[in-house]
Design a protein around this nucleic acid. Structure first.
Lengths: 202, 202, 202, 202
DNA sequence: AATGAATGAGGATTCATTCAT
DNA sequence: GATGAATGAATCCTCATTCAT
């Protein structure tokens, strides 16, 4: 019922964006099944129908959050991996992962959930994200120490898993000291490698 | 005196036990919210009401599985921690955790889910199980290297988290080699400690 | 699993009786639909099956309570109606009704509920109890004042209803003064009759 | 563009209203526990979900019916109480109560049920409605006769209870004569007062 | 005489989704 | 673009009842 000539607010803060953020917020502490479309819509201050208008389905909304997070995470990790000093690169990557999970708990939440659900992931490197992150880690590790082919994936996965899980577990803590300690603890895996494997001679 | 075709209890294999096992099976690959009471009852070959007769509620059934797993896990870990050689103790503990998660994927699943849900667990050592396991790990670590008070919990949590998460991720693999590799990867954290901290002189 | 020769307690306080009393107690404050067989059995300290062994069904148990109460009430009211002084008779009857409802709130509860349920009771004198009580009241009233045939039932019903309802409403009060006041208030109906109708000349 | 035989809403007679009326109808002769949401929805010709969309819960629907009735009843009673002649006021009030209960049997049904349930209502004037109605009655009675403070509430309660209960008992009768007789019977309480108490000299 | 395990029908409620406006 | 009324399938749970022991 718009009068002709009337004009909508230019920055409607697009309902779509509001929904995205509200969903991120809510999914930070609950599983998707435990968050209803009503709740998301209410939190975004729009009607339920708008969710369907913008995303088509709840699953699609969740997927988009997951994708968005994965993109953001991978982008930054890729940058950090370029550091000339591979140890420093790993440290930065882990630090960033910690920050990221703190900032987007919903992402870690969703990603873990997704990993844990399907039986299909028998190959334990199924998901694109997992594959990408571990590939990146392996790349950096290769520049640091000499690893047998067979142990590369387990090591990378361990680092990734430890970082993700521990970060998520302690993500509510605003305590930076704890963050520091956790990063160092995860880096111990790398220290262990350095102590037991021949360094990469480059 | 069973008519052919009649579908009575084949044996009074205690419906309770049948339900427990069916639930364990189903919860191994899906979150509690994603498993319905009907499904559990059907899988156990009993009626829905029997679930409520035996457990009172779905939540209670889930809790009991969690408790059962926690008890079993702690019991064995406590035994293994007694090994005179602390490094060997840690190795055995991690190995056992891997096996355990493979055998009872539902346990890890449930436990993680529970951890990830509540905001309350801000102190990241809230759950009794987490507390118990990390306490045990710290005890063993103390016999191995000298750690600052502040870093004890982060280190122990990292080991626990890495083991649990990685194990869960690769749990479908029956491949023992992979298991071995994963255990070794997790132990790298300990190797890192040994390489960077003064040994406990006992 | 009784050893031969063993003997049961002589005074088993008959489970049946225990059930009856427990049911009376519970039905005093809740509608039959709101009281489960489990609750009754638990309150009586017997198993659920015992209810069915002794009463056949929940409805039957409720019916028996109703019958028991009706019998007891009618028996006493009939005695009191015999008083030579019809006014005194009415007063005693109302007093007794008050006491009765206080002692057996479940009875009033059940009886009202039953009255209110069925559409059948279109004739508003359907139930045997109602018929009996009003008949008794009319008999006494006839000895006191001269009433038109058409107004007899309404007057008797009003007294009965007022007594039952008001008694039930204030039944939790242990306060005897209030009881007295309520009795007097109900008797006002009779006073009104006395003031406006010709006395029975006997 | 309705295909013949299609069963869409005939008119958007607001499902909410349809549900309200269907529920009133059904609750007129049965207790809330004995009426299922399915039945209400079916009677209103809408789906079960619509009940929850409009009312949130069964209890809320029941409460709203109760409130609606209480409002309507009190509004009219308040008007009638204003009559200059207090006796006539009381007569009109009782007459209206009779009509009201005949028209909305569900209201009396629900209200009684609610009164009879809780043990909390020990003070026998707990409910707002009861309090309001008795307050109104007392106000009118005060204009008619002189009553001791202590007997006011019992008298008012008796009138209210008698009217409500007797009305409900005979509500199915369409017979106006009976109505008249019942009103007169209840008014006897007032006649009794007039005969035994000093008139208010105003 | 009594039990308690088991049942299945039924009840309240939630929720993703559709659709006319 | 957006809404909100309406839906119906699915879910958790209750409960009267049965029956073998």
């Amino acid at each position: 019922m718009m009068l002709p000539g009337a004009r909508r607010r230019v920055r409607t803060t697009d309902s779509k964006e509001r929904l995205f953020e509200a969903a991120m917020e809510l999914l930070g502490s609950r599983s998707p099944e435990a968050v209803s479309v009503d709740q998301i819509a209410a939190a975004a201050g729009v009607s339920k129908g708008t969710v369907y208008y913008n995303f088509g389905s709840k699953d699609e909304l969740v997927s988009q959050i997951l994708e968005y997070g994965a993109g953001k995470l991978m982008h930054q990790l890729t940058q950090l991996a370029k550091d000339d000093d591979p140890y420093q690169a790993l440290k930065s990557m882990i630090e960033f992962a910690m920050e990221f999970v703190t900032g987007y708990p919903s992402f870690a939440q969703l990603w873990m959930q997704e990993q844990l659900q399907s039986d299909k992931s028998s190959d334990f490197a199924q998901s694109p994200l997992h594959r990408q992150v571990t590939a990146l880690l392996i790349e950096v590790l290769d520049r640091l120490v000499h690893l047998d082919q067979a142990e590369k994936l387990p090591v990378a996965s361990t680092i990734f898993g430890a970082a993700l899980f521990t970060a998520r577990m302690s993500s509510t803590r605003r305590d930076d000291l704890a963050h520091e300690q956790v990063v160092r603890a995860i880096l111990l895996t790398v220290d262990g490698l350095l102590a037991t494997r021949p360094r990469t001679t480059n």
